[in-house]
Structure formats: C-alpha cells, structure tokens
Design a protein around this nucleic acid. Sequence first.
DNA 1: CGAGTATGTCATCATGCGATGACATCGTCT
DNA 2: AGACGATGTCATCGCATGATGACATACTCG
Lengths: 206, 206
Amino acid sequence: MTDATPGADGTTAADSGRPEPAAPRRRDAARSRELLIRAALELFADRGFERTTIREIGDRAGVDPALIARYFGGKTQLYLATVRMELGDSAPADLLDEDRLRTLVERLTRRGPGPSFQAAVLPGDNTEVQQAARTYLHERLVQPLHDRFAAEDVDRPQLRAELAAAAFAGIILARSSGAFGELAKAEPGELLPLLHDLLAASRPTR
Amino acid sequence: MTDATPGADGTTAADSGRPEPAAPRRRDAARSRELLIRAALELFADRGFERTTIREIGDRAGVDPALIARYFGGKTQLYLATVRMELGDSAPADLLDEDRLRTLVERLTRRGPGPSFQAAVLPGDNTEVQQAARTYLHERLVQPLHDRFAAEDVDRPQLRAELAAAAFAGIILARSSGAFGELAKAEPGELLPLLHDLLAASRPTR
DNA sequence: CGAGTATGTCATCATGCGATGACATCGTCT
DNA sequence: AGACGATGTCATCGCATGATGACATACTCG
C-alpha cells in the first residue's frame, strides 16, 4: 500500500539531479517492457506461473498491468518472453565441467532459478509455455551432457544426461524452495564440491 | 456437458451383476471419503495443488465435489489428508540402501510421486499445506540419510542428506513430468543402478 | 504552436474457482 | 411403519483473475 503509488517511478531520483545519459523519457515503452520482464522473471521463478498474477507483476515493476496485454499480448506471452531472456544471456553449460558448473551455480544463486527449471520438474498439460521452457532446458543442460557422454562412448548417454539434469534441477529448486534449511544456507563454495561429485557420478566409474 | 451427469455413479457396474462382499451401501460416507482421497492423490501428484480443481476431483472420484467441503472442510484439508495417507503407508527409506531404494522407486513408478515431492521443490508461502508435506519428506528421506552419514562420521551430514534428497526428488518428479523422454521411458531395472550410483556419490569417496 | 500518435491509467467484463446452504433421498432404529 | 439423522445433489454466491476498451496525458514532428 505505502509504496504502491507507482505514478512517479524511478525517474524521480534521476531527473532531480543530473539528467541521465539515457535521457529517461517519462514515457518509454522499451523501459516498461524491460521492467515488466524483469519483475516477471523474479516472480515466475519465485512462485511459479499459475500463482503469479499480472497485478503482482505490474506492482513490482511499477507499471500498470494492462500494459502486459498491450506489449506482450497476455500473461502467457510474457512468460515466453522471460524464458527467451533466460535463454539469451548465457551459453550452454556442461554440468561436469567444474568451471562452468561454478559459473552456473553462482548465477543461479544470485538470481534464483528461472522459470524453466520448474517446468522441468512440474507436470502439466503440454502447453506452449512448458514446451518452451523444456526446449530451453534441453539445449542448455541435457544436450551438452549427452554430447560429452556420447564422445566418451558411455552407454545410455541420453538417459544419463537427463538423469543428471533432473538431479541438478531438483537441487537448484530445492535450494530456493525453503524446504531444506542447510541446503538453502550453503554458500556456493561449500556446495560446489558436493554438487560436482554428485553429478560426476552420472558417468560410470571407470 | 455430455458426460457431466454423474448422477448414476460407480455403483452401476457393481450392483448389476453380483453384490459385492463388502455389501456396498449405496450411501457410504467412508467409501466416498476414500474415493475422494484416492482421486485427489492422483490429481495433486499429477497436476499440483493449484491446478487441481475440486470439480475435477469429484468427477474422477464419481462423488459430488460438495462432499469435499462436508467431509474434509475444504480443498486444503483434503490435501493434508492425502499427505497423511502418503505418510502412513510406508516406512522411512534409506536412499543409499539398494533394496529400500528399489522398493521406493518401484512404488513411485506404479503410483507416481505423491504431492509432497512437489512441495520439496516448489517455492511458496509457507502454508500449512507445504509445511506438512515438507515435514513428511524430512522424516522419510532426509532424516534416515542424515543418521547414516552421522553414524559414518561424514562431515556435513545434514547438507549431504538434503542434497541427496533434493536430487532424488528432482529425478522422480522429472520422470513423471513429461519433460524428459528417456527418463520417463526407463524401466526401474535400468534406472536403479544409475540412480544408486548417483545418490551414493553424496557420500564422500573414501 | 498544434495535430497526431505513443504511452499510461482506469473501470469494467467474463470466467473459473472454492465455498455454502437449501433441498432430496436413503438407511437405520424403535 | 414412521421418524430422524446421515448422505447425496444441485443451484448459487463471492471472490480473484486475466483480459479489454475507453479515456487521459505526454511526446514528437511539422
């Protein structure tokens, strides 16, 4: 309620002192779109697709929810936009490579898991929504693992890759779900060795 | 609309031929409760709490949805009842024990993961609902692992136990989510060795 | 400076949901 | 057999949500 008056938004701080280099127009569709996507990314990751309302998104973004319909077409298309953004900003990650794993985990720790992780694990009608998220996960997590296993001539490469990806998704989600105390509190530093050992076991010991 | 007339319920099949030994009274509150819980267990596991409607539950159970309110108090209490049932019918399972793991996985394969697995991984307000499911998971999965690790004098026993439980939950959920093809198709027989190796890696190699 | 469009705001609609209560039917006990 | 409680059925309410369109204001271009 108190801070719910979004009329004068972030620009107040900006235009009082120096004019920003980006010259923030008080009306800026691109900025509004960006704010909406960012707010949606957080909320979708935090509460899932269904339980996030467009009013909440608008509230957090400081943007009228009606603009979601205008700029994206609806809640569903906004979700798809967040998945695409999640996809865009990072390269495929090989879970068995320690450096890549560290990078990935640190990013996930800072920003929370994106909506796609939930789609990996949550059942549901195969809507366009879930399909997009799952395609993303396959490209980002499963495919690299599969390629590695196939190159190493491991048997059942696809099954092993999916198994490791599912385990990883479970851990990441559980970490931010609040269900596991120690897991949530653990720093990436203490988590990484354990996580690495666990995932490495998806490859047969030789 | 077409099949929405549930007036003549499941009894039609029963009373046509032979009378059941249980002498099913045409009106039987206990039976209705049972049917509702069973239908709810399936649907909650299959589609999550939010996306399951009491009308669906009633439909599948062949029982009027209004009875949910009458017998349980509401959708939430029905959910709690399903979790309690999930809890009741099996002993704590040590994920590192091959036999127990097999038993558990086979049961989960037949009946699908219960609602509590989703609660482990899904974020959300700490409602009574999630709390119950999480308590259940701790007793069933985390605690046994912790005890084992502690007995073996492994460091960070709690963290390791939570990590393994989260990975297991992720795999089980992913398996029935439809997101991973190979994982879904895999027989318990082919899955078990891989799963066991993976979970065993939550204990440090010595 | 004025017109026209882009952007933002607001009220409102339609829908689906959980819940509730009135009513109908059955079962049991005396 | 009759009465009374238990069980089932149905219509409906209130609420939250996503969507929509009318209106208001700001920006830009001539």
